[in-house]
Amino acid sequence: MFILKTESLTKKYGSESQPIYALRDLNMSVEAGEFVAIMGPSGSGKSTALYLMGGLDRPTSGHVWLRDKDITTMNDDALSKVRRESIGFVFQFFNLIPVLTAVENVAMPLILDGVPRPQALERAEAALKQVDLANRASHRPSELSGGQQQRAAIARALAAKPAIILADEPTGNLDSRSSDEVVAVLRRTVDDFGQTLVLVTHDPRVAAHADRIVFIKDGNIVDENRLKGADRAEQIREKLGRVAMSEG
């Protein structure tokens, strides 16, 4: 059963005479508990696809189904509610509110949804724990490293227990070590909590964590890679571990 599905999703920019298609008839579906990575050259429409899936923008044509609801026909307020309750976003620039502490930032979607502040903060603490940031709860974003900020942003996306998390190059702004931390946290939410996750990335190392990689070019899917589970672990071990010896 899919959590999210796009149907002939098309987004056109530019004038009528010189249209630029950011997306062209994109059909793609994400299963529950699946971790999908979207890859593709810059300008291929990855972000556009993600934004449309998350109801941040409206398609020129086509539909986005979130479970059984078509979010492309909703009005702005209903769409806001969907974003608040069913979708968690993680962006390249962590986009935390500078004047709020980490835990307050994480609680923001809950508070926007009308959860009383004490409960919201409590749930935010839990989300922070999930990303190993419980000890930084009362720090302002400026007091956190990039990786920590991004993990706080992930906690914010997790806080409302959304149906799906959409992440647009979440490691694009991080060094490789922080990037590994962040993607490990994301993978863990999938493994441990059955979170559904769609992630746009340029980085093969990040994409390699996914269960499936979708390759996009010029606004459409050009290839897809379902990655098999790690049951061949012993095989790798053997292959990697066989050190070629020579006399010498």
Partner: peptide, 21 residues
């Protein structure tokens, strides 16, 4: 290219998973 890439990603996926464990 695509076939090769798939294989490489599968390998990378495997190694990544190993690494995680």
């Amino acid at each position: 290219l695509s076939a090769q890439r798939r294989e490489l990603y599968q390998q990378l996926h495997n190694v990544t998973e190993m690494l995680r464990k």
